[in-house]
């Protein structure tokens, strides 16, 4: 299998606030790994640190055996990490197609066509709306666009931040099905979710983050059964 991502003892601050307090975890090739935890626990901050938008004061982040802790965010994408940020953050004023083109910003020309087909295959809804301004899409379609955009760069590791946020239950099911399909097709996935039940049901392994620290870890199944997790995150 081999390890794709290793995060070693990272500490992240927002000014004086110590948001991440020595988090370490790893993701193996082919896995779905999820980070669950309450609002403000530091899940999104962790993803932002991996993708280079935030910096850790200590420790190291290794991707495919190479340290990326000091690599600029726009270069980390080229190494094979795609980050779908919280709130989707698609380019609202650009068309669906232009958003996907931005996702392929660093992709080699001969791969773009292939990746575009793959994205349309996964998200047929997007294909019907290529010329539509992205800001006018529904919430679910925007989430699909954000994920499609991230797939345009051929990522080895796809990081998804709260893909279920604000979506109707039927759409949540659909999105999670797509996540599993992508994983089966070979993409390693690091998933951050508040919807712990959903996340644990698809994850191979999971980490629970509490106020900037990892409090528990195990397989998705183990954690779903654990009393602590059930009380705190699964409503008993």
């Amino acid at each position: 299998m081999g390890t794709v991502l290793t995060v070693k003892n990272i500490n992240v601050y927002y000014g004086a606030i110590h948001a991440i307090k020595g988090i370490s975890f790893d993701v193996d090739r082919g896995e779905i790994v999820t980070l669950i935890g309450a609002n403000g626990a530091g899940k999104s901050t962790t993803l932002h640190t991996v993708s280079g938008l935030l910096r850790s004061k200590t420790g190291d982040i290794e991707f495919l055996g190479e340290s990326i802790a000091h690599t600029a965010a726009h270069k980390i994408v080229a190494k094979g990490i795609s980050h779908v940020p919280e709130g989707r953050r698609i380019f609202q004023g650009l068309t669906v197609e232009e958003n996907l083109q931005m996702g392929a910003f660093i992709t080699k020309k001969d791969r773009i066509e292939h990746n575009l087909e793959y994205v349309y295959e996964q998200f047929p809804r997007l294909k019907e709306r290529t010329r539509q301004i992205a800001g006018t899409l529904s919430g679910g379609e925007q989430q699909m666009l954000a994920m499609g955009r991230a797939l345009m760069s051929d990522p080895e590791l796809l990081m998804l931040d709260e893909p279920s946020m604000g979506l109707a239950p039927i759409l949540v099911d659909q999105i999670f099905e797509i996540i599993q399909n992508l994983n089966k097709a070979g993409t390693t996935i690091l998933l951050v979710e508040q919807n712990a039940q959903m996340a644990l049901s698809v994850a191979h392994r999971a980490y629970v983050i509490e106020t900037g620290k990892i409090s528990l870890s195990g397989t998705g199944e183990e954690l779903a059964k654990s009393d602590e997790v059930r009380k705190a995150y699964l409503g008993g």
């Binding site: 938008l53 726009h74 270069k75 994408v77 650009l94 083109q101 996702g103």
Partner: peptide
């Protein structure tokens, strides 16, 4: 153009543009 679209992307969301691999 690619550079022009990148400029629009950066104008809209600097952080998301970096996540696309755009050198802001």
């Amino acid at each position: 153009t690619k550079a022009g679209k990148a400029m629009r992307a950066v104008s809209e969301d600097n952080g998301a543009a970096q996540l696309m691999g755009i050198n802001v």
